[in-house]
Amino acid sequence: MKRKKIITQKTAPYIFCAPFICSFLVFMLYPMINMIYTSFFKLEGINTYNFSGLDNYKRLASDTHISAAIFNSLGFTVGIIIVNIVLALLLAVLLNHKFTPLKNIFRSAIYIPALTSIIVAGIFFRLFFASNSDTPLNTLMQFIGMSPKEWLYDTKITGIVALVFTSTWRYLGTNVLYFLSALQTISPELYDAAHVDGASAWQRFRHVTLPGVKPILIFVITILTYGGLRMFGESYVLWPNSKTPGDIGLTIVLYIYRTAFGHFDMGYASAMSVVLFICLMVLNFIYIKTLGIGRKEEKR
């Protein structure tokens, strides 16, 4: 009986971890290995692969669409980082202030868009940015004396702004909650001490609030960066057509999707996915080194 109990205690962790390990092997590791393998082949027909070596990777240097996809993805990533960090942190500070009325209602209301499906949100903002003169945005532009615009097909800049606006509306509430949780861990005594020492509101924010939310700030920057570079849903819904003038709204992941399932060029799509994966891993390494993720604080 004792021997059986010891065996059960030793095998129990493996039994509990088995579902995760199986899911990881089937849905993560195998697709990644298959992606790398497929990147060296060219699909001909339905299920006929011919070895092409590094040809798929060489195509990246001469592809006329990949540069537009990279520009749009980087512009979108920078935009959502700036907007979501600045706006979310300011809103979190306001909602954390003891004199702000109806704080709980505003906290709940600001999170509601995060529960909305990306398809629903994308369709709404596709209509919001439409070229009709009676759309909300163009109505506002005419009210201030400007002519209506076809925002989604005007320039790459307006396309990036539309993507940033759509994503910010949907994910701002989540980032506000992240910062709120960090603000509530800061001791009020630190603010009282800074106030007694004559620190202004900006100095209290800079020397008390920012250091207190630094771990969450790094976390939010990291997930926004990854979310921006692998963004797909917003661009897919805002621009349902396969092609747009000047590749407006074309992002890296959307281009991979259209290459794989629109042109059935699985080999080239896999090659782009491998390069994107390597870039994300390099970016992750840079974040770890520069932002001090996982580094123990030095003793004073």
Rank of each mutant, 00 (worst) to 15 (best):
A12T: 13
A12Y: 12
F16L: 15
F20T: 13
F24P: 01
N34D: 15
N34Y: 13
M35T: 15
Y37D: 13
T38I: 13
E44K: 13
G45K: 02
G45F: 06
I46Y: 15
N47Y: 10
Y49I: 07
F51M: 00
S52F: 05
G53M: 01
L54N: 04
D55R: 12
D55G: 05
Y57D: 02
R59V: 00
L60F: 03
A61N: 10
T64P: 00
T64A: 14
I70L: 13
I70N: 03
F71W: 15
L74N: 01
T77Y: 11
T77W: 07
I82E: 09
V83E: 00
I85L: 14
V86H: 06
V86M: 09
A88S: 15
A88C: 09
A88D: 02
L90H: 06
L91I: 13
K98P: 01
K98G: 05
K98R: 12
T100I: 09
K103N: 08
I110R: 08
I112W: 05
I112F: 12
A114Q: 08
L115N: 10
T116G: 07
T116R: 04
V120H: 02
A121D: 06
G122L: 01
I123Q: 11
I123W: 15
I123P: 05
L127I: 14
F128W: 10
A130P: 03
A130R: 13
A130I: 03
